[in-house]
Design a protein around this nucleic acid. Structure first.
Length: 453
RNA sequence: UCCCCGAUAGCUCAAUCGGCAGAGCGGGUGGCUGUUAACCACUAGGCUGUAGGUUCAAGUCCUACUCGGGGAGCCA
């Protein structure tokens, strides 16, 4: 008999004579002559209540089942006599698939996130983490749907690269040299190579061929960051659009965030409800603001003026020409505007070489999207498409035009205005679930000194 | 990397001024009950993160280290 997933069973409209369910025991309650088993198979948040009667030939064994054991149950789906669930499974056959000794660390009680991080191989069996990873899966699907519906092509950019100065942080070296060997010409690629910190430069090449493209893949940063919103390995979504200016870039960023949030609201109601009840009481209100209001758009210079006139006391001074600190970003999005804010046209001195120079010669066509609780969730820009201007900027910032010859050359042949941005996928999952630590939205997170699982 | 906080039973946490190491949950045993964070009784479970130091006496005070959390920087 083919097994029925609990998610499907919960949607039954009429009883069923015989079905097969397989899953893990979440808890067991014993009566005098029978036992209730709560079975979860990961297909949804809900458990299935199984009624196992003492007449079953292996009832002695069932009586000894503990939390964590895996079982297969065959029986009839009937309306539940108790309240709390519509259906229950009247067991005809209960088979123990894998026992769980009393050392099983997950109990039917609340555990701390810190404890669960130490048992990452088991924590997905809890309500909170299975819900988080189901939402993560659903969000990934929604990303592809969003772009597909708009005629974007999904492209795969290299994970191994020789780029070493894209201005996006420290790099993980990749080598096949034995320890101690230092001769780069003997290395696999013959040059220094690293894990990618961004697929943007390659995505630009594809955008100027396919039109609208996006990447969605792993990204690696060797920064020694110890915060709740940084990981050494994370997934990034990077759309890149030909014939697109900064305004259109911001339009897409706003539309995308709203689309993704709405998708989860529409498709993950049960899982989302868990987070709204137990993780972040303000979650639904936050998502309402996110999906229901136009994002504020202000130039960097105006953001600085607002901060200067705010009267708020900041630990770090507000000054034109410097990067905004976390506290400044939080003030803008959480206190001043109370909704997502897009800051654009940053001074050229604090942004990378590839961003398009504005007519004022001082600012570049860049933008950050700031949201409450997370901070910067998107960073993007219109790219410098003018060959001479790009070459000048590379010289000014000390980049090798020889090494990036192909990037520069793309501006020589049919160059077009184009724009794109990077969206941190994990920060998106955090935003939608209210989970406050990035380590809890990645099944097996990689952070400094943490690669055990 | 810097600043702050923490580490006590399998888990979540108590332990007053430095004075006998505690509870709930989970485990085991027995009871009760169409139960649903089930309930009731009994029971086992500890080198208080590691290494030093102060003291008649350290979970508690001091030093170093390890691990964890929060904040900052870097960014997505």
């Amino acid at each position: 008999m083919k097994r029925t997933k609990i998610e499907q069973l919960m949607a039954f409209e009429v009883p069923a004579e015989r079905i097969l369910v397989k899953g893990w025991v979440r808890t067991k309650r014993d009566s005098k002559t029978f036992s209730f088993l709560e079975i979860n198979d990961g297909s949804c948040l809900a458990n299935l209540q199984v009624v196992a009667d003492e007449k079953l030939p292996n009832y002695e064994e069932i009586r000894k089942l503990t939390t964590g054991a895996s079982v297969a149950v065959e029986g009839a789906v009937v309306p539940s006599q108790g309240s709390g669930q519509q259906w229950e499974l009247q067991a005809a056959v209960v088979t123990l698939v894998g026992a769980a000794p009393e050392s099983f660390p997950l109990q039917k009680k609340r555990h701390s996130d810190e404890f669960l991080r130490g048992i990452a191989h088991l924590r997905a069996r809890t309500n909170k983490y299975s819900a988080a990873f189901r939402i993560r899966s659903e969000l990934a699907l929604a990303v592809h749907r969003f772009f597909h519906e708009r005629g974007f092509r999904y492209i795969h950019t290299p994970i191994l690269t020789a780029s070493d100065c894209e201005g996006a942080g420290e790099l993980f070296r990749v080598t096949t040299l034995p320890p101690g060997e230092r001769l780069l010409e003997n290395d696999f690629f013959g040059v220094e190579s690293n894990l990618t910190v961004s697929g943007q430069l390659e995505a630009e090449m594809l955008a100027t061929a396919l039109g609208d493209v996006y990447t969605f893949g792993p990204t690696f940063r060797a920064e020694n960051s110890n915060t709740r919103r940084h990981a050494a390995e994370f997934w990034m979504i990077e759309p890149e659009m030909a014939f697109c200016d900064l305004q259109e870039d911001m339009d897409l960023a706003e539309e995308m965030i709203k689309y993704l949030a709405n998708h989860v609201i529409d498709h993950c109601a049960d899982d989302l409800n868990l987070f709204a009840r137990f993780v972040d009481k303000n979650l639904m209100a936050q998502l309402g603001v996110l999906t229901g209001s136009a994002f504020e758009r202000i130039p960097y210079a105006e953001a600085i003026r607002i901060l200067e006139k705010s009267g708020a006391s900041f630990e770090y001074p507000v000054a034109y020409g410097t990067d905004m600190q976390s506290e400044h970003e939080r003030f803008l999005t959480e206190h001043h505007f109370k909704k997502p804010v897009m800051v654009y046209d940053f001074p050229k001195t604090i942004k990378p070489f590839y961003m398009r120079m504005n007519d004022d010669g001082q600012t570049v066509a860049s933008m950050d999207v700031l949201v409450a609780g997370i901070g910067e969730i998107i960073g993007g820009s219109q790219r410098e498409e003018r060959y001479d201007m790009l070459a000048t900027r590379m010289d000014q910032m000390g980049l090798s035009k020889e090494k990036y010859w192909w990037y520069l050359e793309s501006r020589l042949y049919g160059s077009v205005p184009h724009s794109g941005f990077g969206l941190g996928f994990e920060r998106l999952v955090m935003m939608v679930t209210g989970i406050s630590n990035i380590r809890d939205v990645i099944p097996f997170p990689r952070t400094p000194k943490n690669i055990e699982f």
